[in-house]
Design a protein around this nucleic acid. Structure first.
Length: 859
RNA sequence: GAGCGUAUGGCGCAGCGGUAGCGCACUUCCUUGACAUGGAAGGGGUCACAGGUUCAAAUCCUGUUACGCUCACCA
């Protein structure tokens, strides 16, 4: 399931990450032969979209009210057709291989039907109801918004200490402290802690509310914290969430003193003088008036948490009004249980704690918005206020006629639904629900949802609730919308800072793609997508993977230049040379790592396995090792090697194709001479084809490791002695028959890779020439006669250093092996491993001793 | 206040019970016919701190410190 991006959105780096991961999964499972549906779509983003279109109209000097509801909605659709969904074009640039033809939109006909059906059913089940409660009112956008759309910001303000005169007692006051003095006009009580000695005796008395002279009671309530402020708190139930609860407990009246613009309203509650004043202005005037009356005790500085609307960025006003609610508490129960029971798993699992915490304390979900753009609430109000809610308009009118016994005029509710209401149905509505479509049967429950942690509440939780309510098995139990929920990291900038437009540190993925290629960007994101940590994205990293892509091109060029044409009929089981067998076994290991990485959502492991194999094994060693073979005169071996090379290259690209689809397809087309080719329709290489050979191939690895070690030892010496690139003679004295065989077999490779001219294999009894530098490797000692007298002192020092180092390791290992506890308690393979290491070290030490002796004889 | 997370070479990160790895950066050398967006060889870390468990701890447990994030907050 693709989390529907917002219709107004454009691609940012977070999208790039989430869609890259989804695309990797999609492409990978297609290679595995699975029937993959990646369902794309968008949501209609009620507030955001309405804002965009209103802003456009505003530029022409038109307000939406000038147009009227219907015409305005037409305009929004117009805008949607023209500019909406830009993000999908950008996603294609990134290579996202979603099922674009199945694209859905939360306002399309099918989803509108689903929304209506869902609403009506929930209404009739009593899960949707109208209620008068405090909501977060956005005075700029003129709509309610949900708790999740409110961001609290720290603001420096003041605490005003106001004297409230006690009724009937001269010069007796209770002092309340408030951050919002203007709300005092709506006060309907003063609360003190029931046990607070200072105020206990006042409980039950009234105070005369200044400026209005209303009498309001002093009540005892635990909400009042004796430690905070003055210990006495004014209660404004209609404009504060805590006060609302206190008000309910003590049956205090709830007086709304503001209008939809957060101006003091025109009711009798508000003294005429203040009516129409914006809340900030009212605050100033009221404070002045209190001061004049001598009722202002003092003003102190105070830092408070102020709620802002995340879209409008204005201070949200809690308002008492009628809104529609979903009984989220009831819906949450099965949704919580599904996670508890593991029917749906969070990856990484820690996120379930976040989910539980929110779900277990869930509040009624306010779903009505005072907007025009969205799904209009399918409820009609009769003249006496009776509500009619049915699946079709006809049914509504029939029901109303039945109720009233005659035709009456009905008015549809003005509000629309929260966008997340329709998004909450996404997992099944996009598959055709409420119809029983084949897709619904085939793909539901879906396999995985990939998303960021920031929308666990917004969307994941809501989709869990809605899906489990509407989708049931034959026993009527809720079915989860997806088996796994993979929560990925947040992309930050290089320094780990959250990207934001105001900081100017946003990285535009499209610019990165232009600069380094979409594949490099994808690979970077995959390589950095380790679980449980945010991604600090630096451009140098992308550059590095661009170089990786170039490296792949060059490797391909080498193959083409050397006639490594792909032969579909070639069987990797027929490889005879250790070098070829080795690269096949390394490929199998890499393929396994990629498989596990992707299947376990450890994309960094998959990416690293590919990088290491392609560059560190295939390019650095395999290609180098094949050069002398291809140039040699063993035709059959050269042919075998060419076929192994091309096959491994192609299979490697296949493993890479989920992460780097562009370059892997492109190279494969070259290699195969087939412009239509794409890995999208290919199948993953089945390692079982190699089952009879793989052990043998792994054995070839020992031989190649020896070869690599030997070559490296010589190169290292070469660098140390500043020999440059000139050819050298090499004497090899093997200490085992196996090594002797290797030395014979790899003679041409050693000559080429270590730039060896005269090549001799010595018997165990032979002595190295006095001018030979001696190098100790596994199972052999190497001698490099330099043709001139060596620096005996330097050689002795070098050998001594190595001897000491080896001895130190021998001591540490034998110490460990001498420990009874270790040998008896540690697992056998560990003990044996150490024993083997010790043997190897001892053998190396013996060879070093011998070398030292030889050198010593010179002096 | 509650929950979650992070502390590993100059930087960015893996590893999460068996004697520290990767990329970038750094040093030296290299225009040999895939590639200088490259090749070869190197240097660099007592894995935040203190205890504990274990034959064995960067890795598990407890505590401390620092820094993030999320949720709830005091009027």
């Amino acid at each position: 399931m693709m989390p529907p991006p917002n219709v107004t959105g454009s691609l940012h780096i977070g999208h790039a990450l989430t869609f890259t991961i989804q695309d990797i999964l999609t492409r990978y499972y297609r290679l595995q032969g699975r029937d993959v549906l990646w369902q794309p779509g968008m949501d209609h983003a009620g507030i955001a979209t309405q804002m965009v279109v209103e802003r456009q109209l505003d530029a022409q000097g038109i307000s939406r009210h000038d147009l009227g509801r219907e015409k305005f909605i037409d305009k929004v659709w117009e805008w949607k057709e023209q500019s909406g969904g830009m993000i999908f074009k950008q996603l294609r640039r990134l290579g996202a291989s979603a099922d674009w033809s199945r694209q859905r939109f939360t306002m399309d006909d099918g989803l509108c039907t689903a929304v209506r059906k869902a609403f009506v059913r929930m209404y009739k089940d009593g899960l949707i109801y109208q209620d008068k409660r405090l909501v977060n009112w956005d005075p700029k956008l003129h709509t309610s918004i949900s708790d999740l759309e409110v961001v609290t910001k720290e603001r420096k303000g003041h605490l005003w200490h106001i004297k409230y005169p006690i009724e009937g007692e001269k010069n007796s006051y209770i002092i309340v402290a408030t951050t919002r003095p203007e709300t005092m006009l709506g006060d309907t009580g003063v609360a003190v802690h029931p046990e607070d000695e200072r105020y206990k005796h006042l409980i039950g008395k009234n105070v005369v509310l200044p400026l209005t002279n209303r009498l309001i009671p002093i009540v005892g309530d635990e909400h009042a914290d004796p430690e905070t402020g003055t210990g006495a708190v004014k209660i404004t139930p209609a404009h504060d969430f805590n006060d609302f609860e206190v008000g309910k407990r003590h049956n205090l009246p709830m007086l709304n003193i503001m209008d939809e613009n957060a101006h003091l309203n025109d009711t009798d509650t508000v003294p005429e003088k203040y009516r129409g004043l914006f809340r900030d202005k009212a605050r100033k005037v009221i404070v002045e008036d209190l001061e004049a009356l001598g009722l202002l005790d003092k003003i102190t500085d105070h830092v408070s948490q102020v709620p802002y609307g995340d879209r409008s960025d204005v201070v949200v006003e809690p308002m008492l009004m009628d809104q529609w609610y979903v009984d989220a508490q009831t819906l949450a129960k099965p949704a919580i249980k599904a996670i508890e029971d593991g029917d749906t798993k969070f990856v990484p699992a820690n996120w379930e704690k976040t989910y539980f915490q929110w779900m277990r304390n869930i509040q009624p979900w306010c779903i009505s918005r005072q907007l025009w753009w969205g799904h209009r609430i399918p409820v009609w109000h009769g003249p006496d206020g009776t509500c009619f809610c049915e699946e079709t308009d006809e049914a509504v009118f029939t029901a109303a006629e039945k109720h009233y016994g005659k035709t009456v005029e009905l008015v549809q509710d003005n509000d629309v639904l929260d966008t997340w209401f329709s998004s909450g149905l996404w997992s099944f509505s996009t598959l055709g629900w409420p119809d029983k479509t084949p897709e619904l049967g085939r793909y539901y429950p879906t396999s995985v949802l990939v998303t960021g942690f920031d929308i666990i509440f917004f969307w994941v939780a809501r989709m869990m609730m809605m899906s489990m309510h509407f989708m049931n098995d034959e026993n009527g139990n809720g079915l989860v919308p997806f088996k796994d929920i993979y929560i990925h990291a947040l992309v930050r900038d290089e320094k780990g800072q959250k990207m934001s437009k105001s900081k100017g540190n946003v990285i535009d993925p499209l610019i990165l793609c232009d600069k380094y290629g979409a594949d490099s960007v994808r690979f970077t994101l995959a390589a950095m997508a380790a679980q449980g940590r945010d991604i600090a994205l630096g451009e140098s990293r992308v550059e590095g993977y661009r170089n990786f892509a170039t490296k792949l091109w060059n490797a391909t060029r080498f193959c083409e230049l050397n006639g490594c044409t792909y032969d579909a009929g070639f069987d990797l089981n027929t490889a005879t040379h250790p070098v070829n067998q080795w690269v096949i076994s390394e490929f199998v290991k890499m393929q396994e790592a990629v498989k596990n990485g992707i299947e376990q959502y450890k994309f960094n492991e998959a990416a690293n396995a590919l990088y290491h194999f392609a560059w560190g094994i295939f390019c650095d060693w395999y290609i180098e090792l094949t050069k002398p073979i291809l140039a040699g005169n063993d035709e059959a071996l050269a042919t075998e090697t060419k076929k192994v090379t091309s096959t491994i290259l192609l299979e490697m690209l296949k493993c890479l194709s989920p992460i780097m689809p562009f370059i892997s397809d492109e190279i494969a087309r070259n290699l195969l001479n087939d412009n239509e080719f794409s890995f999208m329709t290919e199948n993953w290489f089945d390692v079982r084809k190699l089952s009879t050979k793989i052990d043998k191939y792994n054995t070839a690895g020992r031989a190649i490791n020896w070869l690599v070690e030997t070559v490296t030892a010589i190169r290292s010496m070469r660098a140390e002695k500043n020999l440059g690139g000139k050819p050298i003679p090499l004497q090899i004295k093997p200490s085992t028959d196996e090594a002797a065989a290797w030395a014979r077999e790899f003679e041409p490779l050693l000559r080429s890779l270590a730039r060896v001219e005269e090549f001799t294999i010595m018997a165990g009894s032979d002595e190295f020439a006095p001018d030979a530098i001696q190098l100790v490797v596994s199972d052999a000692t190497l001698g490099v006669p330099l043709g001139s007298v060596i620096d005996v002192a330097a050689e002795k020092a070098r050998l001594t250093r190595e001897m000491e180092k080896t001895q130190k390791e021998i001591d540490s290992l034998s110490g460990r092996l001498a420990n009874e506890n270790f040998v008896s308690k540690a697992p056998e393979h560990v003990v044996n491993g150490y024993k083997q290491q010790l043997d190897d070290l001892k053998a190396a030490k013996a060879k070093l001793d011998e070398a030292f002796e030889t050198v010593s004889k010179i002096a």
